[in-house]
Design a protein around this nucleic acid. Structure first.
Lengths: 249, 249
DNA sequence: GTAATTAGTGTACATTTTACACTAGCCCTT
DNA sequence: AAGGGCTAGTGTAAAATGTACACTAATTAC
């Protein structure tokens, strides 16, 4: 169980975390300015070595929390990257995670790493050190994939949101236009968001209704298990297969 | 770039490969009888250390080829497992792959490892060393998921197959019954299989037609890119979104 | 030639997806 | 307070897809 730290740079593993946020109608990713070689001073994905007595998920959670102060956020392992020459100093494989956070909850941490962190619009990130561009792209694909299948969009919005905001989020991430009426019909038919009977304030036009995600109801469905393929249909109260949800590992 | 082999057991990474096959109407997995401690003599997933100058995919391909003599098969990284105590001798994380092979092409290799390999029906594998049961389950979920979305079933069948065989494969993997007429309608409407105008031989009943997978046509669609969400529809010759295919990374 | 066995086929209905354009409500200006 | 500017909010019809369901056809074995 003992690990020789002196050999870390010869054969080691790290986690890299693609932290997505959504703001100003734009999908963003949190990057840090590297404080060490190689690529010191460049913007890169936040990552760190996995400690010897630390599980992979734990390491990813740690990196996220040190950077953002947030825990209990959506986090998922995506893929492991281990090309022989991906790190100039030795053989380092990295397990890529992505997480979804509400930028509104995010406050800059005082850790020296976190002070160097900044949100970047996805569309403007064109160059990253190591194989980080590939990792980013991979996580982005996964996010798009997931967004079609699961109600994860809510993770990126403040607790109260309007349907238009939600639609803009879908449009920004999927890079497509959606029909307003069809989008609302579909979202509402999921029965996973609750009308708060509150209105937007401080806008210079007709205010929109505010909604929140019905996390309890979603949990319930997850726990009951999806049984899409079964022939018998619980008539009411059933989330149909089409409704952005799907059974998965 | 140098790696200290003496430290391999202190902090190392391996690949484990879940090799699926299909035979006698049953989904199978290829297991090896371990020739070394720990768990010597137990059936386990085939795996191996990743060599210092070897990419992860390469390592997975190597393990597969040494065991089966096959290359150029469907192989995909699934997930990395790295619980601190998953290996009793030290910190070993493993990158899990799964591959799909045609059992009909499989011949036992003469390597000492391969001699100890055997196909096991998935349903009868109930206990495996390390966290291999979790890995197997994870790959199985991925396979099921994939089978709904992509035409990967063909990878498990001999080059010529009948529609009934294909249906049985879907039923076995998805653990569900499918309607014969609807299944055929759907499969044929994909236009991804070619009617060979040949008949089954040596069966004691009406012989079925033989088909083969139209790999070229599938490649073509992959290369053209899926553009499901676009509004304009190439009227004919288009694979619709519903047809077991989907855009993914 | 007949029994046994699997192959092969069509139709009607339900559900889901898609396309599409106008009215409603609030704020700000004048 | 009337009107302009802006975003919110709503319904319907047609097309595509999914689902349920039962009989005839072709071959072999006896």
């Amino acid at each position: 169980m003992a690990t020789d730290f002196g050999n870390f740079f010869k054969s080691a593993f790290t986690v890299d975390n693609v932290i997505f946020g959504f703001d100003e109608g734009d999908l963003k990713v949190l990057l840090i300015k590297r404080g060490e070689e190689p690529f010191m001073g460049d913007w890169a994905l936040p990552g760190h070595f996995v400690y010897p007595a630390e599980d992979l998920d734990t390491a990813a959670i740690r990196v996220l929390e040190e950077l953002t102060g947030l825990n209990n956020v959506y986090l998922e392992q995506v893929k492991t990257f281990g090309a022989v020459d991906r790190h100039p100093f030795g053989r380092v494989i990295t397990i890529a995670y992505f997480s979804l956070i509400k930028i509104s909850n995010y406050t800059i941490q005082s850790s020296s790493i976190a002070l160097q962190a900044q949100w970047h619009s996805i569309s403007q990130v064109t160059e990253l050190p190591f194989d980080h561009m590939v990792i980013l792209q991979s996580c982005l694909n996964r996010l798009r994939w997931l967004l079609r299948l699961r109600p994860v969009g809510f993770e990126l919005l403040p607790p109260k949101f309007t349907l238009t905001e939600l639609q803009h989020l879908y449009e920004a991430i999927l890079e497509t236009d959606l029909d307003k009426r069809n989008f609302r019909k579909k979202i509402l038919s999921m029965n996973l968001i609750i009308d708060l009977d509150e209105m937007q304030e401080g806008v210079a036009h007709r205010p929109a209704r505010l909604y929140k995600f019905d996390r309890k109801r979603y949990q319930q469905f997850l726990e009951e298990g999806f049984s899409f393929e079964l022939k018998e249909t619980r008539k009411k109260e059933r989330i149909s297969r089409s409704q952005l949800l799907s059974a998965d590992q």
